[in-house]
Design a binder for these strands. Structure first.
Lengths: 194, 194
DNA sequence: CTCCCGTTTTCCTGCCACGACAAGACCGGT
DNA sequence: ACCGGTCTTGTCGTGGCAGGAAAACGGGAG
């Protein structure tokens, strides 16, 4: 069932304009694109003018020709002018694991007041914890860690890396990982997940 | 026409798993989701198991319930087990604008050896530049800046914010923006874009 | 075992994506 | 002007596949 509400909800993605943009950028005609995709020129025209919603197979065929992923069409281009500032003094600090003896790190959210997050960022202070007590965790996406000070043991899967101040890592956070402060002094860093 | 090639091309998006993930995260049943979306539980089951490709209207209905955009489904989740470490000493430093007098900042890529980037991260040292010479720039996506030291004037669109060490900003980098070091001493930070 | 709940399978319907075709529309070239 | 040619947009028809209804399956709990 195709209701006005749904049509409205799909409009912001501007599929038609994006399709037309891709095609014209390569100065290609509807018929030519039709040959490459195996679709009729007539239908391509309708798609570009928003008279019709492509099925995923259809959309993928076109995407393949232009070498883009489907995400190209669905990255919401509503320019939400997001600006969220997290002042150091205003930030809340959460212990990683309140009430237990094994607090591995304190962290502060750096963008908790951004409505729409594609990124989650934290400022972390790693606390000394017995190596056997550190907890592994995992979550979908990727993670980026920039170490500002101290030395940190980072375990990813079965491997452990030693990071010094100024080092950075980028890894798939779907793999189990854990942090362990290796330096005597303070150990701080910025963590960004997506 | 629905060919094996197309099926293969759609697999990496793992629509089914994502749908199921969304539903289970809210510990919701197929029937309940059916009520909210106006879709039959039977079909939802098929979608989650990849037996069927949803049309865009259908997909949108589900997305609306969970408050996600369609982009949620099409960000390619090929789990390449990425681990890329950028050691401080091994990193290359690029001036923002080599050969010209108006170098606003030096930056070092923090994940340049990661094959598939969803995130781009830089360590930046902001240099003193006359305020009128700073250049505005823009690029798709969002940007996150964590200021490690110094004071920085950040202009986003027509607004200017003053950031102190430890502050962080999260904003839509599609809007024109520029950096300008406000402190006498060194001014450094981490920039992540997505 | 029976009841209950959520899920999957089966079967079928009908909507709408998509194609075929033709009619504009807009170019040059002669 | 009058033609090709190329690109685009209507109109109409169809069948593939999304989607529904209901029955079968499965797993706890009692």
């Amino acid at each position: 069932m195709i209701t006005p509400t749904i049509v409205e909800g799909l409009r912001p993605y501007a599929l038609g304009e994006k399709l037309r943009g891709l095609r014209l950028r390569k100065s290609m005609g509807l018929v030519e694109l039709g040959k490459h995709t195996g679709l009729s020129a007539a239908m391509l025209s309708k798609l570009e003018r928003g008279k019709l919603f492509p099925t995923l197979p259809t959309l993928l065929r076109i995407a393949l020709v232009f070498g883009v992923g489907l995400e190209y069409f669905f990255t919401d281009e509503r320019k939400r002018h997001v600006v969220a500032i997290a002042r150091k003094r205003e930030r809340l600090r959460f212990p990683d694991n309140p009430g237990k003896g094994s607090i591995a790190y304190n962290f502060e959210s750096l963008d908790f007041n951004a409505t729409e997050r594609k990124l989650n960022a934290f400022y972390a202070e790693f606390e000394p914890v017995a190596a056997e007590k550190v907890r592994l965790h995992q979550h979908a996406g990727v993670e980026l860690l920039y170490l500002i000070s101290g030395t940190l043991d980072l375990t990813i899967g079965s491997e452990t890396f030693v990071l010094e101040a100024g080092d950075a890592v980028y890894f798939d956070s779907g793999v189990r990982h854990s942090y362990h402060r290796a330096s005597k002094g303070p150990c701080t860093g910025v963590i960004v997940t997506a």
